[in-house]
Amino acid sequence: MKKMQLTLTVNGEAHDVLAEPRELLIHVLRERLGLTGPHIGCETSHCGACTIDMNGRSVKSCTVFAAQADGATITTIEGLGAPGALHPLQEAFREHHGLQCGFCTPGMITRAYRLLQENPSPTEAEVRMGMAGNLCRCTGYQNIVKAILAAATEMNTLKEAAE
């Protein structure tokens, strides 16, 4: 099958990618662009480990063909923070023990990022509802919710300080 030329803007950088239409976005991100932050967990759109931000929406990249993403603007966990300059969500997950094995964490944080963009001061119930598409098999969610609530407070404080 003929490959397609795709243009993706990922973490602020434009990429031209040659891919078969049937290639899943998660495979293009991991194998062609070397962005191994988003993980492949269940591969059936249940677990949320592959969550990325695409055109301002949280998307499970195992259930999107790369061809559908042609022209899209994408943020992965690699685009949110860096070693030495962690995103407040990353800091909060570390501070509040929001992870054990870490496998679900990139998807959790990328999803939480969009949740807090849409709702900067969520209640605990809103966090739980908003994170319902991400599964964790280690921590039982309590500390993940705590971390997100703490990050929301921190992000609001930083925003006020900047204004």
């Binding site: 949320g48 929406r57 949280s58 999803r111 598409g133």
Partner: peptide, 8 residues
Amino acid sequence: ADPQVRYV
């Protein structure tokens, strides 16, 4: 479903 599925 869940939030991610409802976005698409």
